[in-house]
Design a protein around this nucleic acid. Structure first.
Lengths: 149, 149
DNA sequence: TTTAAATAGGACTAAAATAGTCCTACAAAT
DNA sequence: ATTTGTAGGACTATTTTAGTCCTATTTAAA
């Protein structure tokens, strides 16, 4: 269902939580407690976010995790790719090697355009936006169609 | 990886194929042959597309499938939801019932906005666009960020 | 009216991805 | 030294997805 994995979902919850208190070092245990996500799972997610340079970790007693940069500079796209790998709707957009159908496939180019579109949409939303109080706009304008007309 | 399922991918290939010859009735066997996708799999996909009213089927000898409407009027969003169900990145955007974290979750509203954005992007691209010769534009403009500034 | 060529619907199996857990090693503070 | 913490990876269980198959029904044509 074009669904994000649960882990990614958790990651956004965790990061939102951390963003509210963005200079404080949070331990995995503490985060598990406030988010009510099981500790081993929290740890796993935090590690992935460190690898993606979204978080910075400190080892040892009083160690823990902090945001590596301002919430405004952490895009949703970054978080998703940290947890799930590259954002691409179709297999052929990632692996350079042609699929079996590639020869007669005239739609690859257009898929990559759609991927690009979605990637841009996710890139433009940041952690700061996520924790902002919800505003439901009258209309959401997406001029993708203009590309074709 | 925010990936489409293989079946959805196949569906776009199948539909593109059918769109090239949009008034002709195609049997499942014929489609399997030209797309090189296994027959039982093709059948499964075609049935789903009939249920979603993207295709119209005719039973019996000389029966088969045709597009239910013009390729311009079949959106990628429709195809995706036919195969995968509602397009929603997060669980909570679909099931009305609150998740465990819901109480302290301040990001649900913003997720639904992102969902909406992506849905609109996918809604604006049609089967007709998919089979069009690829054009790579200089820039893809997505003003999602403008919603927040 | 019989037969062949199709789809409809659903049950079922196999395979792959995802989620979740656990263990051992390492680092820093007290 | 000991305690509190992360790093990294192996492992297991669960769920989802992909793929197959069977039986019923429908229609065209011989």
């Amino acid at each position: 269902m074009l669904r994000l994995s649960k882990l990614t979902d958790y990651a956004t919850v965790i990061l939102s939580d951390m963003a509210k208190d963005k200079t404080q070092v949070h331990s995995a245990m503490e985060i598990a407690a406030t988010t009510r996500i099981a500790l081993p799972t929290v740890s796993k997610i935090l590690k992935l976010l460190v690898n993606a340079e979204v978080l910075i970790s400190t080892r040892g007693a009083k160690g823990g995790y902090v945001l590596a940069r301002e919430p405004e500079n952490i895009s949703v796209a970054t978080v998703i790719s940290a947890l799930e790998g590259p954002i691409a709707l179709t297999e052929c957009s990632i692996s350079q090697q042609a699929c079996e159908q590639a020869a007669g496939c005239g739609i690859r180019g257009n898929w990559s355009l759609i991927n690009q579109t979605i990637h841009n949409a996710l890139e433009s939303v940041t952690l700061a936006d996520l924790i902002r109080p919800t505003v439901v706009p009258d209309e959401v304008l997406i001029p993708v169609s203009s590309l074709y007309r």
